[in-house]
């Protein structure tokens, strides 16, 4: 399974032609207590970099951008009732949505774990 990261602190894991997307543990720690998550509609098609979901902490709202182009095939309904799951398990149970990948080449523009860790370290 391939795992990649964006500079906007999303993670994406590819399994066949389906990609699961969430926000990184670093991102949730920067946000603080997550109190609301807005998920995309299943069937929505979007391009790499499009804002498709929203995560809100007590203080502010942040967009979630699509790491690679595709069509939303499943969303994590657990987050609607338990947004705090994002703080508890950002890179596990708190995945946001799954997409059917339409352009696998988009992955080439993303970072692997080591590159992302270095990016976070460099940018505080």
């Amino acid at each position: 399974m391939t795992e990649r990261f964006t500079k906007d602190h999303e993670w994406v894991r590819i399994d066949g032609d389906v990609a699961t997307v969430g926000i990184t543990n670093h991102a949730q720690s920067q946000l603080g207590d997550v109190v609301f998550v807005e998920l995309p509609e299943v069937g929505r098609k979007a391009a790499q970099g499009d804002a498709v979901a929203v995560v809100e902490s007590v203080k502010a709202a942040s967009d979630i951008f699509l790491p690679i182009a595709g069509e939303v095939v499943e969303v994590n309904g657990d987050l609607t009732g338990q947004p705090a799951l994002v703080n508890e398990d950002a890179e596990g149970k708190a995945w946001f949505f799954k997409i059917k990948v339409s352009n696998a080449a988009d992955l080439d523009k993303l970072m692997d774990r080591a590159a992302y860790d270095a990016f976070v370290k460099e940018n505080g």
Partner: peptide, 8 residues
């Protein structure tokens, strides 16, 4: 994700 906290 766009971080709301980075301010210059």
């Amino acid at each position: 994700m766009a971080s709301p906290t980075e301010t210059t």
